[in-house]
């Protein structure tokens, strides 16, 4: 049923496309700020445009909002990093197809004074427990972003977040702004490595804990189901998804460098 419908939609979309011209060439990509701010997305799109002359409109928001855009049909493809939310999105029938694309990692950053004494720790849960025990400040994203969801999961595994209202600062903002707040307040924070690298020169925060497998951050891409929203450009979305998971796309992801450092690792095929 599904493949047949997909084909039908493909035909319809391409028929519309040949009629109106612009519709099928425009692709709305809802993604997280981390992919845009790291510069990876621009790099991938530049390569993608060489293969497919399309106009990709990037809407860079939090994971929660990106998924909501997809669920409302205001985006054609969603690229986010929150596996449980992605599965819920697919289970609710909002998505036509989901694929793992790549992963990067989170780091726990802290002030140079390191009041919790966690520098060099590779056990993320131990690091969080020490932060809580020391009463040091911790800035939470608090915005239902992929990073926030991971942060909550890690705190849960570590026995719960700090309870003091002055120790646990729930900022409800994007990664960049939260890094500035943590830097100003001398607080610890969970950040994706990409955003940290782009802020590194402007803040005093240092990597306190990294390398734990629990800090891995996988990204998945989902095509929005055109059955629910007929104006979704599923064909364009499919081209982009195929590109991301092709050997060309994967090697582009792997070779992307920020400050001379690799950030993203393509998902192993198969």
């Amino acid at each position: 049923m599904r493949p047949a419908l997909f084909l039908l939609v493909l035909v319809l979309v391409s028929a519309c496309g040949s009629g109106t011209g612009d519709h099928a060439r425009r692709l709305r990509l809802a993604t997280t700020t981390s992919t845009r701010d790291s510069g990876l997305l621009d790099d991938l799109l530049a390569d993608f445009y060489k293969l497919h002359p399309m106009e990709v409109q990037v809407i860079a928001v939090g994971t929660g909002q990106a998924l909501a855009l997809g669920a409302r049909g205001d985006a054609d493809i969603v690229l986010v990093h929150a596996r449980s939310r992605e599965d819920a999105f697919m289970a609710a029938g909002h998505g036509l197809l989901r694929r793992d694309v790549m992963w990067n990692d989170f780091v726990i950053l802290g002030p140079p004074a390191d009041p919790a004494g966690i520098r060099g720790t590779t056990d993320a849960l131990e690091a969080l427990r020490r932060i809580r025990a020391s009463g040091a400040r911790f800035v939470s994203r608090g915005d239902d972003s992929g990073t926030h969801i991971r942060e909550r999961a890690l705190w849960k595994l570590a026995g719960g977040p700090p309870t003091g209202a002055d120790a646990y600062l729930d900022a409800g903002q994007g990664m960049g702004r939260c890094l500035v707040i943590a830097d100003e307040k001398g607080a610890y924070i969970l950040a994706d490595r990409g955003t940290y690298l782009s802020f590194r020169k402007r803040i005093d925060l240092e990597v306190s804990c990294a390398g734990d497998v629990r800090l891995r951050n996988p990204y998945g891409a989902m095509i929005v189901d055109p059955d629910k929203h007929p104006d979704v450009n599923a064909a364009g979305a499919r081209l982009f998804l195929d590109y991301l998971t092709s050997s060309r796309g994967r090697s582009r992801i792997a070779s992307y460098r920020m400050d001379g450092k690799a950030l993203f690792h393509p998902h192993a095929p198969g």
């Binding site: 998924l67 409800g172 903002q173």
Partner: peptide
Amino acid sequence: NLRLHTRTLPSSIQLELSRG
């Protein structure tokens, strides 16, 4: 926009929108 510290009505709107 710190919850229960400096979160105001306008910044709540902004936050909830960003959460979708």
